[in-house]
């Protein structure tokens, strides 16, 4: 860290997915010692806990408003975080899960604070992807793993390798600019996604609809179905789609012989 850094410091942390138990000790210490704490979490129990840990906690949730463009809400969050740092305070911004995975304001706040000469860092947290590997018993190192935001994946026809695992995030909100109450993915959009995936996978290829457990007394949702049944299945906004890899290609024997070389 540079000695010439301005007074004021930012640390961006994540709470993990499961209430309390997935917050790292390092993040916990930052939450407790922050002069100013701004948070954006998904359910009231985590909010209660954060407020107990640091009575100075302020929610960023009021940056959202019905009909307000999400990008504008994110910019406001970053502005509020930066305004706190400029007061010279030790500021902690708390986000759900991993603060750098699918959290635009987390990275943006760190970048802007550094650009303005403040010390700023992000601590890793436990993301849904980490929970998925544990709950489904898959190792991304085995066959490789690709992650895409579902709408971007479909809209941009992202190139991927079906012999590696595929994870599609936010599959429950395909092409939706905002979330409505009791919202599910529209079947016609799921059909469109399924049609695209059918170019690469057989109709009976298994897929998994996954939701990580949010509470230590709840279970993750793991629903295994055939790809063909995806359009007729309920997919909530927090659902993630995991597609296991197709059988891998035959390895290059010339490379495999390297293991025998002395």
């Amino acid at each position: 860290m540079s000695d010439s850094a301005r007074a004021g410091e930012l640390v961006v942390v994540g709470t993990g997915i499961k209430l309390i138990v997935q917050t790292t000790i390092e993040a916990l210490e930052c939450i407790k010692r922050a002069d100013r704490l701004l948070y954006l979490v998904t359910e009231p129990a985590t909010e209660t806990w954060v407020r107990r840990l640091n009575p100075a906690a302020e929610t960023l949730r009021d940056c959202y408003a019905p009909g307000k463009p999400r990008d504008r809400s994110y910019r406001e969050m970053v502005q509020r975080i930066l305004a706190s740092v400029r007061t010279g305070a030790y500021v902690c911004a708390v986000f759900y899960g991993h603060p750098g995975v699918f959290v635009n304001p987390g990275h943006d706040a760190v970048r802007r604070a550094r650009r303005e000469g403040f010390r700023a860092r992000m601590l890793p947290g436990i993301s849904t992807e980490d929970c998925l590997f544990a709950d489904l018993g898959v190792d991304p190192g085995d066959e490789g793993c690709q992650s895409f935001e579902a709408t971007s994946f479909l809209a941009c026809r992202c190139r991927f390798d079906p012999t590696s695992a595929l994870i599609l995030w936010q599959v429950g909100v395909l092409g939706e600019p905002s979330i409505r109450k009791d919202m599910q993915c529209r079947p016609e959009r799921l059909r469109r996604l399924t049609t695209y995936l059918r170019r690469y996978y057989a109709v009976r290829h298994p897929v998994v609809l996954y939701e990580a457990a949010q509470f230590p007394i709840s279970k993750p949702r793991i629903q295994r179905i055939a790809l063909a049944n995806l359009p007729t299945t309920t997919v909530w906004p927090i659902t993630t789609l995991y597609i296991p890899p197709k059988p891998s290609r035959k390895p290059d024997q010339a490379v495999m012989r390297w293991f025998d070389e002395k």
């Binding site: 954006l40 998904t42 999400r70 429950g172 979330i179 919202m183 599910q184």
Partner: peptide, 10 residues
């Protein structure tokens, strides 16, 4: 349903 996601979805 879905409200939990509303505050975090990109």
């Amino acid at each position: 349903a879905g409200e939990a996601a509303a505050s975090v979805l990109n």
